[in-house]
Design a protein around this nucleic acid. Structure first.
Length: 610
DNA sequence: GCCGTTTTCGGCCCGACTGTTTTCAGTCG
């Protein structure tokens, strides 16, 4: 090891009296997501061990609960406090505390010693679950996907009990599929792909009810596979839909084809599942296949307490098995005394408890949004002129738009010089004088420089109607440096919105390291809004952060960061993020009328920000 | 492992499809 690296490690670690090396506590960067990963891993190992399924479920529930919890659990070291969270008991609370204090989980480490890591990879091969993986290890000592492939290729598996030639063939096919999948898709890829298939089937067969389901319908930011649900009736039997689907032009390979359920791999190497139910059950099936899994488990448990059974065919009274609901999703919830729970927040099950108390928020909707507050013109790296943007944004139903070209330092995006910025402001003022119906806000997306200063001087910033500030450089700053840098911009009295606050890009760049609770606290205190960037590869802030930031009292702007007017419609993705973050119209500044928005933008002087 | 109007033990959501076996276990959602 070179001296340089050795010195870095030495600075990061300390060695205890037993000679064990630990990362210094101040360097432990833990958040809910990191903690949840420990429990997801434990879940996988317990499955391989063939542990009690309910114990496994307890761990996977805990992982999901931790991941989506609105408080930062990494700062809690009190077991009693952690145990107040439903689903977290004595044992898991102890493990969270251990993780928070040491960055390690000894239980997981024991499991890692006991079970070869490669078995986890084997379970990612479609068709191979924990049981088969453990069996293969026991019988043939297979502990990696490569070894599994070699055995299957040589035909050395079909003599095993429960394994036939077909299984062997499917293993090889599964490995091939797995190699082609590069993780999950963004919602921006999955949704248009799903709509294309749905349109094709509904036009070809004139199916009355066909829609996306699963995490896609819940509008999660990333999607594993596409789920589609359709209804059948006397004129449109399920078989006809199965035949049309598996013979459609999208199909590269048929994975499974049954009477009511089929799965294919598309030419884009995406798995698409379809399920057909009779129209009398469509609502129940839609509820069921939309999930989440946890939402359904809680709903079914609750239903049982009321004397009902819920499945994909309907709600049934336990005493006489009489069906009491199922044709619409609303009827399913209504039969259980619940309002129709908004799709995007069906996640952990807490939404069911709150619905029972009548405490669900009225989520922001598309119709609430009155304008886009982050848009680029040809002046920097956009595609359209101001006139084109005004025309298209107006036709889109907006009352206003903020034109926020990049500032001068961002050369790659043709950042606008101070001189040109002043000219652009003048142009916008003149256009506004001529148009009373639609208003343009003169703005800029201003770079937050290395130490938190802005890329335009105060005299320019003061002339602008709206200032959107964002980080485009020095992404690798330490947590402390980045937190200070963003908060300095938040404090700047000229700044109205922090754009794409975490800077992540799906598949390209992780979010920057920062103490987000501190950032949210500052944004709330200094009344600076945080952006929900609707660009499908950003979706930044993400849903969980939105919900946490709201608890601090932060306001948000849902914007597209559009560079072309056909990207105005990306706003839907941002709205979905806001909905999944439990935000209402009141939390969003661009639901305000133009005059109210101007009042809000002028709040700085009244507040005398520090 | 978690939970409790059935509280310290006993139960924990539900069904389709596949491949194998011949009544079912494993996988998946």
């Amino acid at each position: 090891m070179c001296n340089c690296l050795f010195n870095i490690i030495k600075k990061m670690c300390y060695v205890n009296e037993k000679g064990n090396c630990f990362i210094k506590k101040e360097l432990l960067v833990m958040d809910n997501n990191h903690i949840a990963q420990f429990f997801y891993k434990i879940t996988e190992y317990l499955e391989l061990k063939g542990e009690n399924p309910f114990k496994i479920r307890a761990y996977s529930n805990a992982a999901r609960i931790i991941e989506s919890h609105t408080k930062d659990l990494s700062k809690i070291t009190d077991i009693v406090e952690l145990r107040k969270i439903k689903g977290i008991g004595e044992s898991i609370a102890e493990k969270i505390v251990e993780i928070n204090k040491t960055g390690k989980c000894s239980y997981l480490e024991e499991l890692e010693k006991e079970i070869p890591k490669g078995l986890l990879d084997i379970t990612t091969v479609p068709g191979i679950g924990p049981k088969k993986a453990a069996f293969l290890y026991k019988e043939k000592k297979i502990k990696s996907v490569d070894e599994l492939k070699k055995y299957a290729e040589k035909g050395k598996l079909h003599d095993l009990k429960g394994f036939g030639e077909k299984t062997e063939e499917n293993i090889l096919k599964g490995i091939e599929v797995k190699d082609k999948f590069h993780g999950r898709m963004t919602i921006g890829q999955a949704l248009p792909a799903a709509k294309e298939i749905i349109n094709y089937l509904s036009k070809k067969l004139k199916i009355k009810q066909i829609t996306e389901a699963g995490s896609l319908r819940r509008r999660r930011e990333d999607i594993g596979d596409i789920d589609i649900l359709a209804s059948s009736d006397d004129n449109m039997p399920a078989k006809k839909i199965m035949d049309a689907f598996t013979a459609s032009p999208f199909v590269k390979e048929v994975l499974a084809k049954g009477g009511t359920k089929s799965a294919i791999i598309s030419h884009d190497d995406v798995q698409v599942d379809i399920r057909v139910v009779e129209k009398e059950s469509f609502g129940a099936a839609l509820q069921y296949f939309t999930g989440s899994k946890q939402h359904n488990i809680i709903l079914r448990q609750y239903a049982e307490g009321l004397g009902f059974k819920v499945n994909e065919y309907g709600v049934f009274r336990l005493k006489d098995n009489k069906k009491v609901a199922g044709e619409t999703e609303e009827s399913v919830y209504k039969a259980l005394g619940l309002p129709l729970i908004p799709v995007p927040i069906r996640e952990t099950g807490e939404e069911i408890e709150l619905a029972l108390k009548g405490k669900l928020p009225k989520l922001v909707e598309k119709k609430d949004i009155r304008g886009d507050l982050h848009f680029h013109t040809v002046k920097s790296d956009g595609f359209n002129t101001i006139e084109e943007i005004v025309k298209d944004a107006s036709a889109f139903g907006y009352e206003y738009i903020a034109l926020t070209d990049h500032s001068q330092s961002l050369k790659v995006a043709h950042g606008v010089t101070e001189k040109d910025k002043l000219k652009q402001i003048e142009t916008i003022r003149k256009l506004n004088e001529k148009n009373n119906k639609f208003k343009i806000l003169a703005g800029a997306e201003v770079d937050i420089l290395k130490y938190g200063d802005l890329d335009y001087p105060g005299n320019i910033l003061k002339k602008l109607d709206i200032v959107v500030a964002s980080v485009h450089s020095y992404f690798k700053f330490t947590r402390k440096e980045m937190t200070d840098r963003i908060i300095k911009a938040i404090k700047n009295p000229n700044v109205d919105i922090i754009a794409h606050p975490t800077g992540r890009l799906f598949g390209t760049r992780d979010e920057v390291e920062a103490d987000w609770d501190e950032v949210f606290k500052a944004a709330a205190y200094y009344n600076t809004a945080l952006e929900i960037n609707s660009f499908p590869n950003r979706l930044d802030l993400k849903d969980i952060y939105c919900r946490r930031a709201k608890e601090f009292g932060v306001l948000f702007a849902i914007s597209t960061d559009g560079h072309n007017t056909n990207q105005l419609e990306f706003i839907e993705y941002g709205i979905n993020v806001a909905q999944r973050g439990w935000l209402t119209a009141k939390d969003i500044i661009n639901t305000k009328s133009y005059s109210d928005l101007i009042k809000w933008l002028n709040r700085g002087q009244a507040l005398q920000k520090l």
